[in-house]
């Protein structure tokens, strides 16, 4: 029987790989045309600040914007496979790959990764605890608190933190990922400075993520608690912890895999609003700035990367389910 399953699984994985590639191709095509059918023109932005039209024409020439759209598309695909995403319009002459990956990618991944991780851990622990003490003070309390943080507008929360902790109390910095204008003594000094600057956005993002994760987890655990195998585990006289973490949590975690997969692109795209409020130079901020500047190559690069991550993480989640949930078979 397991032989049969292995064959089915291999077939399933192969199908999913093909699907993933097809979807990815669809996305890169869409990614190209979506910018061309949008109103607005990058050249328009380039001349907004006293830029003579001849220069605009020259820029158009340089970026191949005078070519027919079909030619542009072919160039785009060919260059894509050569690992060339073009040059940024607004970071003059800088390759898009560099604009995205030089440091912004890392800033976002570190910030978002940490906050999603903290949010997940706290949400899972609190979700399990709240579910196991249903309707007790800790359940009602944490549900209320997380619902409030969940529904708070992120920019408002960010500004409040900036105002009270940054301006009034002066315990967190007002902008940036590092203290401006200082030379860091050594790597530890740099890390400490970086973490200090991360406090504000980290708190905001963690609070904004935690609510959703928590509610899903709590619900999931409650659902698992009604299952017969939990009663069976209790009848077997297992320790409460063994029941909670060995039996309930494993099953309750299954929906969380989807949640994490869905949040993976978020991990990359960053939280534009939070990054803007705290001047955190990540991909969210880059997206925002590139959008304002009609910087197509950069936007295209970000979207392409995002779509790739989204498609891949869904693929990985599906494969992961095969191993996490033995009931799934293909």
């Amino acid at each position: 029987m397991s032989e049969k399953k292995a064959v089915g699984t291999r077939q399933y994985i192969a199908t999913r790989i093909v699907q993933t590639i097809v979807v990815w191709f669809g996305i890169i095509t869409l990614n190209f045309f979506i910018f061309r059918i949008m109103p607005g023109d990058p050249r328009g932005t380039l001349i907004a600040e006293h830029m003579p039209p001849e220069v605009v024409q020259a820029i158009a020439l340089r970026f191949g914007l005078d070519q027919p759209i079909a030619i542009q598309f072919v160039l785009y695909i060919v260059n894509l496979f050569r690992g060339d995403l073009g040059e940024s319009f607004s970071h003059y002459g800088q390759p898009v790959i560099e604009t995205i990956f030089a440091f912004r990618f890392w800033n976002t991944v570190i910030l978002m990764g940490t906050s999603i991780l903290i949010a997940l851990i706290v949400a899972i622990i609190m979700g399990v605890i709240a579910a196991s003490r249903r309707d007790k003070v800790i359940d009602v309390g944490s549900t209320t608190v997380f619902l409030v943080t969940y529904s708070m507008p992120v920019f408002w929360l960010g500004l409040m933190i900036l105002y009270y902790f940054g301006f009034i109390l002066r315990v967190i910095p007002l902008a940036g990922t590092i203290t401006r204008g200082i030379v860091h003594v050594n790597i530890f000094h740099y890390i400490a400075d970086y973490l200090w600057h991360m406090t504000g956005p980290l708190v905001v993002l963690t609070l904004s993520f935690i609510g959703g994760f928590y509610l899903i987890m709590r619900d999931s655990v409650l659902d698992v608690f009604t299952q017969d195998y939990i009663l069976a585990a209790r009848a077997k006289g297992l320790k409460e912890r063994a029941i909670l973490y060995g039996h309930a949590m494993r099953n309750a975690m299954l929906p969380m895999v989807s949640v994490i997969a869905v949040n993976m692109p978020f991990l990359i795209s960053g939280a534009t609003i939070t990054e803007t409020v705290f001047s955190w130079s990540g991909l969210g901020l880059l997206t925002y700035n590139s959008d304002v500047a009609n910087d197509w190559p950069v936007l295209q690069g970000i979207f392409l990367f995002l779509a790739t991550v989204a498609v891949l993480s869904n693929f990985v989640a599906d494969i992961l389910y095969l191993y996490l949930d033995p009931r799934i078979r293909y």
């Binding site: 500004l159 301006f167 002066r170 910095p173 902008a175 940036g176 401006r180 204008g181 409020v277």
Partner: peptide, 20 residues
């Protein structure tokens, strides 16, 4: 002279008020 990147208008006003 130092040019600092402070994205939001609120943050810039706070930074000026704080002396940053």
């Amino acid at each position: 002279f130092r040019i600092d990147v402070v994205i939001g208008q609120d943050a810039r006003i706070l930074a000026m008020r704080a002396g940053d």
